[in-house]
């Protein structure tokens, strides 16, 4: 890639073995600021393994991870987050019974005082959470309701709002649209475009070629743990991506 900007995230020779299974093999990857990369590949291709390594869930068996050009090792998911890499999990992200303020600030609550007693500052958390969502062009009519009352797209927005409020540079989304209806899928696509416009890097896993072509700049195809090829969206077409995925194309 000829990008002049330092990649937000880069991997070199990244490998992961589970016993005898080579889940990921010598995978080189770069993500530039303001870039959206779709990760494609059949089931078992290694997409989740890759995202788990760069979000600190797995230690790589081999290879390097660089954040902003600096080699790093992640001591768990918390550490990856501290270094600006945030993964949005479909179902693990939110506490359904809490409002958006409590969810956006979960683990980093804003506090105030009543006399000498510390109190959780719900009002300020709500207001700031609404602000974080407004940045994503998402506006909720009521802030005090549990997030279970929100639509799928709104819930993703809360999870993403949470990430960017705490200065994530890279957002990883595993099948962000899988569980959503069509209008909600569009909203998630809009969210991704908003993130790109703000200069964040986005990696998203998808099985949906239309989504990939609609929103990403680049498509990276994995096959059996290896890079099968990568294409800029303007220079390729769905059939080629499918060929790369199933492996009837020698060129990478």
């Amino acid at each position: 890639m000829g990008d002049t900007a330092e990649p937000l995230l880069e991997t070199r020779g990244l490998s992961k073995r589970f016993g005898g299974v080579h889940a990921l093999e010598r995978f080189d990857f770069q993500l530039a600021p303001g870039e959206v990369v779709a990760l494609a590949g059949d089931n078992g291709a290694g997409k989740s393994t890759f995202t788990k390594i760069v979000s600190g869930v797995y230690l790589p068996s081999d290879g390097e991870i660089l954040v902003g050009g600096r080699p790093v090792t992640f001591d768990g998911p918390q550490d990856a987050r501290r270094q600006g890499i945030e993964t949005i999990y479909q179902d693990l992200a939110l506490a359904d019974n809490l409002d958006i303020g409590a969810n956006v600030f979960l683990g980093r609550e804003l506090m105030t005082r009543f006399l000498f007693l510390p109190r959780v500052d719900r009002r300020r958390m709500r207001e700031e959470a609404a602000g974080a969502l407004a940045v994503l062009d998402v506006h909720l009519d009521r802030l005090d309701r549990p997030v279970r009352a929100l639509s799928g797209g709104q819930r993703q927005a809360v999870a993403i709002g949470r990430a960017i409020h705490f200065d994530a540079r890279v957002i990883i989304m595993d099948e962000p649209t899988a569980a959503l209806g069509v209008p909600e899928q569009r909203k998630v696509m809009d969210l991704i475009r908003n993130l790109r416009a703000k200069g964040l890097g986005v990696i998203f896993i998808s099985h949906n070629l239309a989504d990939m072509f609609a929103v990403s700049d680049r498509i990276v195809v994995l096959r059996r743990g290896q890079l099968a090829g990568e294409r800029r969206v303007g220079d390729t077409e769905p059939e080629e991506i499918v060929r790369l995925m199933v492996g009837r194309d020698g060129a990478a």
Binding site: L92, A95, A102, L106, R108, E109, F114, V120
Partner: peptide, 28 residues
């Protein structure tokens, strides 16, 4: 009442009951 409705312990009590995985991931 203070503990549950106002303190951080209470906040996390609800959060764990709502989604303990998410709460753990949030560093609690």
């Amino acid at each position: 009442h203070y503990l549950l409705a106002e303190s951080l312990t209470g906040q996390y009590t609800y959060a764990i009951g709502g989604n303990s995985q998410a709460t753990l991931r949030a560093g609690v």
